[in-house]
């Protein structure tokens, strides 16, 4: 039971708004001590996993290129394209992106889009331009449209990737169940990601259409 103290540390640390990196390290230390692990063993386990998971941080390699293109007006061009499109609404734009993201993620292409690759330089400026064309400029401090663009990217990514048979989570599921003597083909698992993917598309697309109706009325 004592080892659950680490989970309490995480929850409390977040509510009290300590720096999350600090909260995570303290939680690891508390958990390790509660389990009676020597301090060096905790540090070693932590360092080993940190080193093994560096690939998570590789995606920031795209930042110099995105930054350079932004200096040469990438975001402004993205806005201009949407402004020049008749009938472009923020809802339709984001639904099209959602579909694109789900399909490409289902083909295993999760890294071709993302917050740094597509949302900041392209999708968010386009969504803002479309929403402004529908309802005029957003009130000061209203961050809902860019946040919704980022949210749409996440929904598409999460509920597309599991349809691809070689994605990490499928391999994890196969490995964990194999530990219980249950042998599954990756394909059996990925097929059962499809109903949830359809549900995700329907739920999120409905919200986006609803947004269009609300924005349109305000004009």
């Amino acid at each position: 039971m004592l080892v659950l103290a680490g989970i309490v540390v995480i929850a409390a640390g977040f509510l009290l708004r300590f720096n999350p990196l600090l909260v995570v390290v303290v939680s690891a230390a508390v958990t390790g001590f509660a389990a009676g692990l020597p301090p060096l063993a905790i540090l070693a386990a932590f360092g080993k996993a940190f080193n093994a998971d560096r690939y998570v941080t590789v995606v920031y390699l795209v930042l110099p290129v995105i930054g350079l293109l932004e200096r040469h007006g990438l975001q402004q061009r993205a806005r201009a394209v949407v402004e020049g499109m008749r009938g472009a609404t923020v809802g339709r734009l984001l639904i099209a992106y959602l579909l694109f993201r789900q399909i490409t993620a289902a083909l295993g292409l999760t890294s071709i889009a993302g917050p740094a690759q597509t949302v900041r330089p392209l999708l968010a400026p386009m969504a803002i331009a479309a929403a402004e064309a529908q309802a005029g400029p957003a009130a000061d401090g209203d961050e809902r449209i860019p946040a919704l663009a980022a949210a749409t990217d996440n929904v598409g990514n999460f509920f597309g990737e599991d349809i691809f048979v070689a994605v990490g989570s499928i391999l994890l599921m196969k490995g964990v169940l194999a530990g219980y003597g249950i042998e599954l083909m990756p394909f059996q698992l990925s097929v059962w990601a499809i109903p949830s993917a359809v549900a995700a598309f329907l739920i999120h697309a409905m919200r986006l259409l609803w947004l269009d109706r609300r924005l349109g009325r305000r004009r």
Binding site: T31, A35, I42, F46, A49, F50, D53, T57
Partner: peptide
């Protein structure tokens, strides 16, 4: 982005400690 860039890597490490401790 700042420190948020390494939080996912840190949480993976926390997961390793949780596994070791039997959480």
């Amino acid at each position: 982005i700042g420190w948020a860039a390494v939080l996912p890597q840190m949480l993976a490490s926390l997961g390793a400690v949780f596994a070791l401790a039997g959480v």
